[in-house]
Design a protein around this nucleic acid. Structure first.
Lengths: 340, 340
DNA sequence: CTGAAAGCGCTAACAT
DNA sequence: ATGTTAGCGCTTTCAG
């Protein structure tokens, strides 16, 4: 692997000065037909590519945005990331990703260091979980920043999904169908306090005058849902279960089925997210849709606005909030309770 | 948003020269306790971060690797990406991603341009699909490159999963269970010619002296599997179906079930991948496991070796190939054929 | 141990 | 239209 050609090599090869090559490259100034041609030939013959590093250093503008996330493979994360990437690519930006595995200071620092060492135009943080929330405060304040989250944090531009309202609507629907109460299997919360999903569920029950049964915590692993489903199978008072996400709901349905409880005949089970496989499940899953792709695209759009402002040396724009609804999706996994 | 501090600001603030600050930063030379301390304080007070751009320009080495992929949200892609990221982060590299939506020259160029404008240490291409395969040849030859793929391309370092062998093993298993033949529902191939999965299936049939029935093509959308399942339900000669991936298999099972065909009692259905939800499906899916996370980690490891060699100005190492086995995972969705 | 000087590859100003 | 000059922020000689 020999030294890659630099602009000076091209200039020499074409018999012109370095700035002339640069002018051909950027198209920012007129160059005679003849020289332009020679330069282009030299570029092709040498296989020259301008150094992005030198360009970035000279121009002082970065065309890279970073995404910080607790993981990149679980459904919501992956699709949000894809939405951000789509918006960024359309705007000619590259996307840098870094996973923050836990909320330890050290982990966060290690994850951010290589990212911050790049020339960055801005950062999007997926604040879906404690690592993401913790990462939020480690972002240098001079960098445009947008958080994607289920809960509001003041002072930061954010795109949020109104989980609370979606969960409440689902809970009300279940109560209206005749269930005496709705049990809740929660996914790990993003912060110390309860998630929006859990809060919406609790609120709907309270407003209906129904005491909230204890929350059953699940992990992110669908297998934890299976174990919970098996436990719930013995409890004949449980007729409706709202799960923190679709994968857990799938696990719960499986656990119930293994113990002979049928869904929705014996127990109604609902999820959250509208996972691509939710409508293929048997029975098809009643759930609350989160449009992660749109979430991601809007996160980038919000960031782009800040980047534009920063570039004009304008003051950082007021922290904006974009809020999405999470609509109820009724399918076959829920229904009226058994008549006893 | 004011101009971020540069090294000269730190030097001035600490009352030392610029090189001294640099020495503190890199740790490449001794600095007196006193000055080191003052520099560190100045760095903290100013919130200074060294410019990765300038560093990269000066040192000529980049700590960013790019990943080119057809998408980032489907299971195999997302997990492979996560594996690459994990390896890269452990090695102090940042990961840049870009999606290549189709195999058009223009699309590829547009996707690569912002990426190549960055200082790159190397590129990993997910050559799972035609866009990925096409992107492969658009990568500048002086850049360390690793392809992750299901099929071998000579001359490029690669990490591949032996899909062919896995598919053949699965097919043989189905034949051994007593099925007269095995039908195949294919996912879109990565190249013009057939995928490894399809080839392995075909080979196993040929070796068993069984003529291969026509391949039924599916799209990446699980819903296409549902439609195919419905069609297959009428064909009583179809007793075993090998699907190109688990999501399609889930769709096929659902389509069959909607038409009253039970799995595995009436028809055996198998998938490929071992998707996280495969074992929660009813019935749990027989499949062939692809360890995407490992694939990703090894792709980075291979790339790191090339990067190291490039850094030592050594000749590019011989194109290495790492091949993984894809083991059969037997679950409940397959069994012996109905006795007629 | 420390500062002065040089230069990484490129582009923008400034002269022609 | 084109070449000359300067400089982006940093690290590494080179003197002292």
């Amino acid at each position: 692997m020999t030294r890659p050609p630099v602009i000076a090599d091209v200039a020499r090869h074409a018999g012109v000065s370095v700035p002339t090559v640069s002018r051909v490259l950027t198209g920012n100034a007129r160059v005679s037909e003849d020289k332009r041609h020679r330069v282009e030939r030299a570029i092709a013959e040498l296989g020259y590519r301008p150094s992005g590093t030198a360009r970035a250093l000279k121009l002082g503008l970065a065309r890279t945005v970073a995404v910080l996330a607790g993981n990149t493979s679980r459904h919501g994360y992956a699709v949000t990331l894809e939405g951000i990437e789509e918006g960024a690519r359309a705007a000619g930006h590259a996307v840098l990703i870094s996973v923050v595995e836990d909320a330890e200071q050290q982990t966060i620092a290690a994850a951010m260091e290589p990212v911050l060492a790049q020339p960055l135009a801005g950062i999007v943080v997926l604040a879906f979980d404690p690592p993401g929330v913790a990462a939020l405060s480690a972002v240098p304040r001079d960098l445009p920043l947008v958080a994607v989250a289920g809960a509001r944090t003041t002072g930061i531009a954010q795109v949020v999904i109104d989980e609370d309202a979606g969960a409440a609507e689902l809970t009300r629907h279940l109560l209206a169908a005749g269930h005496a109460t709705v049990h809740h299997v929660s996914v790990p919360p993003s912060r110390r306090r309860e998630d929006g999903r859990t809060r919406g569920w609790r609120r709907a029950l309270r407003e209906a005058g129904v005491p909230a049964p204890p929350v059953v915590p699940a992990t992110w692993d669908p297998a934890s849902g299976v174990a919970i489903g098996r436990e719930l199978a013995d409890r004949l008072d449980v007729t409706a279960v709202f799960c923190g996400n679709d994968e857990i709901a799938m696990g719960v349905i499986r656990g119930l089925a293994e113990c002979g409880r049928r869904v929705p005949d014996d127990v109604s089970v609902a999820g959250f997210d509208d996972h691509p496989l939710a409508r293929l499940w048997s029975p098809p899953l009643t759930t609350v849709r989160q449009d992660f792709a749109r979430l991601g695209r809007e996160a980038f759009a919000l960031l782009a606005r800040q980047i534009g402002a920063a570039h004009n040396h304008a003051p950082r724009p007021a922290a904006r909030l974009v809020r999405h609804a999470a609509p109820l999706v009724l399918r076959g996994s829920t229904g009226p309770p058994v008549r006893s």
